[in-house]
Nucleic acid binder design. Structure first.
Length: 471
RNA sequence: GGCCUGAUGGCGGAGUGGUGACGCAGCGGACUGCAAAUCCGUGAACCCGAGUUCGAUUCUCGGUCAGGCCUCCA
């Protein structure tokens, strides 16, 4: 039952052992809230939610502390607020709310903390102050910069050779930098933009410092797990690590910032990286209007989290079909084998797969096996075995954030009460026709139901129905 | 240019030094008034070359191709 996680820093899978099993800490880089987030933004949300669930199962519900930040100070936010002529909080509140709603729809539990930059300003400024005081950072022309030369281990996480970073610098080096690799901790705001008072003049924090400050304040160093998208390895996490460690220990001196670094791969849209500049984005907000959140979650987890995932309509539809199969077995078991209940249990095969660096495809395969076992019990009309198998399927699927709905609700999603009663009436009429072997009439009613986007299925214990296409 | 991943059947996608998961789709059959579901059966893959080995899809090297990072980005 031991958990192993792939650590970006070590570049290998390592057995996971928290510093303190009574307080397991995890931090994941969250969204910049200036617009609806696209589906790619939700891959880490879902992946690390799964890890959160696994850790809670392993160490106890209250033993895992999970912080995911919210960036609510940013150029894109400023731009949006200016366009709308509203304070930035109007923009950030709006999109944070939408983001959380989307995350919830995708089955993600709320993180323990969701710190915002605007609410962490004091800690950020204090941390920068310490970095300046202990010689890890310097002020110049209204900016404060981190001195990468002060941190010998700089570049270790991303594996970037120091020389390359200097030689490969593609952007013009700002004149106030002592070293091209140095990065901003604090900078002046442009006229008209929000600014905060600091010992180095009014301005705003640089991109990376918020995470270091939040981690120190909310979790404490070293944290057990730090997660995010693969693209954040450099420069974001490299810089975060450097400043986070040096704030307490100038020069680093072998101090650990995060004990396990985890990074999820990208979603590819139509053979290309999904990117806002290419315009091939799919907003989770929009997808959720067409597909059930669980289906999107299944699709996001259908490949291993470190691999790139091809995001296509087919993938989502297959995810839906896969869940249909599981829900159908569940539904049949409830109807044919009674509602006798057993203690929910997590199947060992599912646990084993998830503990192996979150091998979700293998875990899903195990779910299908559990479904088959339940199906076999239903066929044999073995109620006790069915109850047992159902408890294992449900317990395992729930751990992964699946089968959270009642089967009826899953299959009849999108049907309002009006449609439901109409369908019930038609089915009753059809039952009468079938009893009289009036097949033409029965088929006519089937067609009528089909026109309502409803499919009827005749079973041994009566007819059931479902919404065919959910849109 | 530097660094780093990956290349598995029609599709998605695990995994393994030795009889090649799982799901979807296909085909044949059972069941069904019809249909759906379900069940049984079935065809189908490990990029190329060299090396290591009794044996490689799995290890090593080279190549090709694809993707990522080096700049805001999950």
């Amino acid at each position: 039952m031991s958990l192993a996680l792939y650590d970006t820093m070590a570049r290998e899978k390592r057995p996971f052992a928290p510093t303190d099993p009574a307080r397991v800490t995890m931090y994941v880089c969250g969204p910049t809230v200036y617009n609806f987030a696209h589906i790619g933004n939700f891959r880490p949300v879902v992946v690390f939610d799964l890890l959160f669930r696994v850790l809670r199962e392993l160490y106890g519900r209250d033993a895992v502390v999970y912080a995911a930040n919210v960036t609510d100070v940013d150029d894109k936010i400023n731009k949006k607020a200016a366009e709308e002529g509203v304070p930035i909080a109007t923009v950030t509140d709006r999109y944070l709310e939408a983001y959380n709603a989307d995350a919830r729809a995708l089955g993600a539990l709320r993180p323990t903390f969701q710190p915002r930059v605007t609410e962490t300003m004091d800690e950020i400024i204090a941390m920068i102050g310490r970095l300046v005081d202990n010689g890890s950072a310097y002020a110049a022309e209204g900016h404060v910069l981190f001195s990468t030369a002060s941190f010998p281990q700089y570049g270790q996480l991303s594996g970037k050779p120091m020389d390359d970073l200097i030689a490969g610098a593609r952007v013009d080096v700002a004149p106030y930098k002592q070293d091209p690799r140095d990065f901003v901790l604090w900078k002046p705001s442009k006229p008209g933009e929000p600014e905060w008072e600091s010992p180095w003049g009014a301005g705003r924090p640089g991109w990376h410092i918020e995470c270091s400050a939040m981690i120190e304040a909310a979790l404490g160093l070293p944290i057990d797990i730090h997660g995010g998208g693969i693209d954040l390895v450099f420069p974001h996490h490299e810089n975060e690590l450097a400043q986070g460690v040096c704030a307490a220990h100038p020069g680093g001196h072998g101090q650990t910032y995060a004990r396990y670094w985890m990074h999820n791969g990208f979603l590819n849209m139509a053979d290309e990286k999904m990117s806002k500049s290419l315009g091939n984005v799919a907003l989770a907000h929009d997808l959720l209007k067409t597909y059930p959140g669980e289906a999107l979650r299944w699709a996001l987890l259908s490949g291993h989290y470190r691999q790139p995932l091809e995001w296509t309509d087919t993938l989502i539809e297959q995810a839906k079909t896969n869940l249909d199969r599981l829900y159908r077995t569940l539904d049949d078991s409830l109807r044919e084998a009674g509602d006798e209940v057993d203690e929910p249990a997590i199947a060992p095969e599912v646990a084993r797969a998830l503990h192996d660096d979150l091998n979700t495809p293998a875990a899903m395969a195990a779910l299908f096996q559990l479904s088959d076992e339940l199906r076999a019990a239903i066929t044999k009309k073995d109620k006790a075995a069915a109850a047992r198998a159902r408890a294992r399927l449900l317990g395992s699927a729930n751990l992964m954030g699946f089968l959270a709905e009642a089967p009826q609700a899953w299959f009849q999603a999108g049907a309002d009460d009006d449609l439901k009663s109409k369908v019930e009436d038609l089915i009753a009429a059809r039952q009468t026709a079938r009893a009289e072997k009036n097949w033409p009439e029965a088929d006519r009613i089937r067609a009528e139901l089909a026109a309502l986007n409803v499919e009827v299925m005749d079973g041994p214990s009566g007819a059931t129905w479902r919404v065919k296409e959910q849109a």
